[in-house]
Nucleic acid binder design. Structure first.
Lengths: 109, 109
DNA sequence: CTAATAGATAGCCATTCAGCTATCTATCCT
DNA sequence: AGGATAGATAGCTGAATGGCTATCTATTAG
């Protein structure tokens, strides 16, 4: 059923933490078990599990348990929505980039 | 001189708040003065100013004061780096999307 | 059956964060 | 000059967040 209607701020929040960001990058290279994922991070198991929960709630990952092992993978659909959002505003940004230096852009104080 | 070497988690952190997210969307339609930006938000001035500072530190906006009015605009370069990051991983994600339903994807428990 | 392994849950603590009020400076208007 | 306006700074507070230990369940290996 899932709760995420692509809540962008929630997705960004999930990616705002170094650990979670790194997990996502790791998962981009393929699914992994929880313990495998956790291994590079110098933190206790439960702490890491919390991060996974945040990622899962934001809809960035999906996971499924087989036996005693939970395998985690990316849920690319959510990334899609981020990409879409950026692209939706892209042209506008580009325009502003062009105008840069005319309007403001002196000392940024 | 600016401090941001495109720290993605910092950028995501800045965008993880509803208010700041809305400010960015507003600014996509053009620069605005602080008070003009603040107007839609039911919060005290200083609270709003803090949000602007977060956005500025993350490199998402630039601002410049003329007289007593500070004008704020987007700094599209930072969005660029987000876009680049997404695109860098895109192809991988798409592949995983294809494989979806084969590997996992049963009940997500 | 028993050990060990993989992960989950509960609850504590310190830090960060988003909001506030009060106060201050600088600019503009009359 | 004097009041209003735009924004800045300081400092408080409560909620959320990231970390921990201790403990528990479920699965696999001997």
């Amino acid at each position: 059923m899932a709760t995420y209607q692509t809540d962008l701020p929630a997705i960004f929040g999930a990616l705002s933490d170094q650990t979670r960001f790194a997990v996502v990058e790791r998962l981009a290279r393929g699914p992994a078990a929880v313990s495998e994922l956790a291994e590079p991070f110098p933190m206790a198991g439960p702490s890491f599990l919390k991060h996974l929960k945040v990622l899962e709630q934001a809809g960035l990952i999906k996971s499924s348990k087989l036996g005693r092992v939970r395998t985690v993978q990316l849920a690319p659909e959510s990334m899609r929505s981020v990409e879409d959002w950026i692209r939706a505003h892209r042209s506008t940004w580009e325009k502003r980039l062009d105008m840069l230096g005319q309007f403001l852009e002196r000392d940024t104080q």
